[in-house]
């Protein structure tokens, strides 16, 4: 039994048929075709599938697809505006904050949720925001630095 679900994905209207009980991760990847969202545990323990739902970071593997009808989803695929990278993407590159890259999409979205609500986070704020996302390669420090860089870069641009 499939259910039609309409939502906004990175600013575009999307309509998809979801199996009843399907999670948002599977619907985004396998129905809509947004492969920037990664699955790492399918049980809400690794953070790789983090997306923003109405601006809040959520684990798409634990989110019922039917529950997002009418809501706005942001994924890593939508961070870039045309050819222009998001400040977080630039900072992640400059800090070499990815190795295998598999956790990166989730990290970026968790970080974006933080910076969207707190443009001047402390290191502790960043650590807290990334605490649900597992990275097995980097040792986290470059990622923390990248998020702090992106925040201070934003402040510089506004100044």
């Amino acid at each position: 039994m499939k259910t039609p679900v309409q939502f906004r994905l990175n600013g575009e209207d999307v309509a998809a048929f979801a199996e009843s009980g399907a999670n948002l991760l599977d619907v985004l990847r396998e129905v809509v075709g947004d492969l920037s969202v990664k699955g790492g545990c399918w049980q809400g323990s690794c953070g790789a599938c983090t997306v923003l739902i109405d601006g809040a970071p959520r684990l798409s593997c634990l989110t019922l697809a039917e529950s997002i009808a009418g809501r706005s989803i942001e994924t890593a695929a939508g961070l870039r505006r045309g050819a222009e990278l998001h400040p977080l993407q630039i900072a992640f590159m400059e800090r070499f904050a990815a190795q295998c890259g598999y956790c990166t999409s989730g990290m970026l979205m968790a970080a974006k949720a933080l910076l969207d609500r707190n443009p001047s986070p402390t290191r502790e704020d960043v650590v807290e925001a990334l605490g649900g996302n597992i990275c097995r390669c980097t040792g986290y420090e470059p990622i923390i630095q990248a998020v702090l860089d992106a925040a201070s870069g934003d402040r510089r641009r506004r100044a």
Binding site: F96, Q99, C137, T138, G139, E141, P142
Partner: peptide, 10 residues
Amino acid sequence: EQQLVGGSWM
């Protein structure tokens, strides 16, 4: 640096 920092974490 990536490997050494990440590896020491592991």
